[in-house]
């Protein structure tokens, strides 16, 4: 029982990480109908900014604030100046722009800060006795805290989308950009804002997740596996659903912890492959995911 519980807690921790990045992907997909390949690298760049500021003696919780601002600007500028001009052309062009941002931001981070692994200051408390004992399993404070932060982000986004004018406008654009434009919604501004917010959430998530994801240090490849898992989570839940991102992320995190723990013939080293089997299976069986809206295609 205690082994099961500790696997459950570990799975919840990584699941919460996947949820945060999956939320970023969902926000972009709702506005632009594309997966932003560079989502992880936005978070990587801002994590480096946080690390650099923390290294200068700034409290890490304060250092996140400028990183979030930089993230917002990067996302918004990328949408306005790089994605929107090629959106009308075809889907491939948008993906290539995403790949260019992916390569460019990764290279730029390495250029500025070097490609060696950086020990990352923890935002969440850890230590020998920072846990609650539940039936012999350790529920660490950082697990509780990251789930709480994730819940706060989800609650904030839900309120934003349901209660504020700009949030309603975003939902209108996600449902039907043309009708939204006819109702006086400034579609372009809404798209830019969605990308900015998405990168800002990523900038908050980055410093939280770097210490939790092996190897626990900040390196140029830190965000890449996270992006793959988050993509699997978002696809599982449905790419345009916030509820889907939460359920998909937690299900994937816990599911992978269980698979790696109990299915021994996989040798515990196949977690990416397992995540990818999920991606392919979801795409083949139910391309809209668990909670995604069905998209009709006019023939």
């Amino acid at each position: 029982m205690d082994i099961f519980l500790s696997r459950l807690f570990a799975g919840t921790t990584s699941g919460a990480v996947y949820v945060l990045i999956a939320l970023c992907l969902v926000m972009v997909f709702r506005s632009s109908s594309t997966i932003n390949f560079a989502q992880g690298e936005f978070a990587l760049f801002t994590s480096y900014v946080t690390w650099w500021l923390a290294g200068k003696g700034v409290n890490i919780w304060l250092a996140v604030v400028p990183a979030i601002l930089i993230g917002f600007l990067m996302g918004a500028l990328a949408e306005r100046w790089l994605v929107r001009p090629v959106r009308k052309r075809d889907e491939t062009a948008v993906l290539i722009v995403g790949l260019a941002l992916f390569t460019g931001l990764n290279g730029l981070s390495g250029w500025i800060w070097g490609s060696d692994e950086k020990p990352f200051p923890r935002m969440l408390p850890t230590g020998e006795d920072t846990y609650i004992d539940i039936a012999g399993a350790r529920l660490h404070y950082d697990t509780i805290l990251i789930v709480a932060i994730m819940a706060a982000v989800v609650a904030g986004l839900t309120l934003f989308f349901n209660k504020t004018s700009i949030g309603l406008q975003m939902r209108a654009v996600a449902t039907n950009p043309d009708s939204a434009a006819l109702c006086g919604v400034r579609v372009g501004r809404v798209l830019t804002l969605s990308w900015g917010m998405s990168a800002a959430v990523g900038a908050l998530a980055g410093p939280l997740l770097v210490p939790l994801v092996p190897p626990g240090q900040l390196g140029l490849s830190s965000m890449f596996p996270v992006l793959i898992f988050a993509t699997a989570a978002a696809l599982l839940g449905g790419l345009d659903s916030i509820k889907g991102a939460v359920v998909g992320g937690l299900a994937l995190g816990i599911g992978l912890a269980m698979v790696n723990g109990y299915v021994t013939f996989l040798g515990g080293s196949m977690s990416l492959t397992s995540a990818l089997v999920v991606i392919v299976a979801v795409l083949l069986v139910k391309p809209t995911g668990l909670f995604g809206a069905r998209r009709l295609e006019r023939v």
Binding site: V86, V97, A100, W111
Partner: peptide, 19 residues
């Protein structure tokens, strides 16, 4: 750029080609 120059250069070339 600490060996990362080519990645940045590729990104710039890619964007130039796309546009």
């Amino acid at each position: 750029g600490q060996g990362q120059g080519s990645a940045v250069l590729f990104a710039v070339i890619l964007l130039l080609v796309i546009f």
